[in-house]
Amino acid sequence: MNSAGTRKAALALATMHPADRRWVLARLPEAWRSALNPLINEAQRYTTLDAELLQAVLADEPTYLAREVPPPDVLIVVLDRLSPPWAARVLAAAAPDHADIYLAACEKTRAHAVRHELSRMPDPFPSALADSLARYLDSAAPSARAGAAP
């Protein structure tokens, strides 16, 4: 079992009812139980587990999906500071549901360029890049918020 698989299995087992967890563990080889038990105990030390984030981790979804997107006016300011290819990447990575709002606010040629780049984005979007771009959006939003204020 690889380390990522072991950690995911431990997270899933940690959230199970104790009887269910015992049943599953009893059916695993001893080597796997030995690897999983310390990780299960570590995961259980946390008093609350965010069910949505846990589902994302177990489904290999990137963590950026759990992040909040800034309000549209702030998002527009942040994206306008980027080239069309990078604006498209940030939209695809961290705010795909806001693409139409942004494109409607853009000048026609910029909207066309961003839309073209969006059509070229890989599916699924690379999770490490998406996480980095979501962090960029988080860090750029406060200065954009200050600049976007009337």
Rank of each mutant, 00 (worst) to 15 (best):
L25E: 03
K108F: 13
R27I: 03
A105Y: 01
Y136T: 00
R27A: 11
M16Q: 13
L118E: 05
L103D: 00
P72L: 06
G147V: 07
S132F: 03
E30G: 08
M121S: 10
S143W: 05
V74I: 04
A66W: 08
L53F: 14
R22L: 08
R45C: 15
H116Y: 07
A26I: 02
A9Y: 09
D20H: 04
D123V: 09
P142L: 10
T15R: 05
T48H: 07
E30Y: 08
R21T: 00
R110H: 07
A88W: 01
D138K: 11
P72F: 02
R135K: 13
Q55W: 07
T6D: 06
H17R: 12
P96I: 00
L13D: 01
F125D: 00
N41D: 14
E107V: 04
H112T: 10
P96T: 02
A87V: 02
S34F: 09
Q55S: 13
T109N: 10
A93W: 00
A4I: 11
T109F: 07
S83K: 08
A93I: 03
Y102V: 00
H112I: 14
R7G: 13
S34H: 15
A10I: 14
L82Y: 11
A12S: 04
P150C: 00
S139K: 14
V57S: 01
A128G: 09
L129R: 03
H98W: 05
S34E: 11
S127E: 15
L133E: 02
R22V: 12
D50S: 08
A141H: 07
L82V: 08
A59N: 10
R115H: 08
G5N: 05
H116G: 11
S34A: 12
R115Y: 07
L82K: 03
S127M: 04
A149C: 15
M1D: 09
A94H: 00
P38S: 01
E68A: 12
R115C: 02
W86H: 13
A35F: 06
R22E: 07
Y64E: 12
I40H: 02
R45G: 12
R145H: 14
W32Y: 13
A104Q: 06
P122F: 10
I40Q: 01
S3D: 15
R7A: 15
E30D: 09
T15Y: 14
L36T: 04
I76A: 14
A19W: 14
P70G: 05
A12K: 04
A43M: 08
H17T: 14
L91F: 09
E30L: 12
W23C: 14
A146M: 11
A26K: 10
S132D: 10
L11C: 02
P85M: 08
T47S: 07
R33L: 15
L137F: 06
S83F: 11
D131E: 09
A99H: 01
R45V: 06
P71I: 01
A111C: 06
P38N: 02
A141P: 04
E42P: 05
R33Q: 10
A88T: 04
D131T: 03
P29M: 07
H98Y: 15
S34P: 03
N37R: 07
S3H: 11
L137Q: 06
A144Q: 01
P124V: 15
D80T: 06
S83L: 12
T63C: 12
P126D: 01
P29Y: 15
S139I: 09
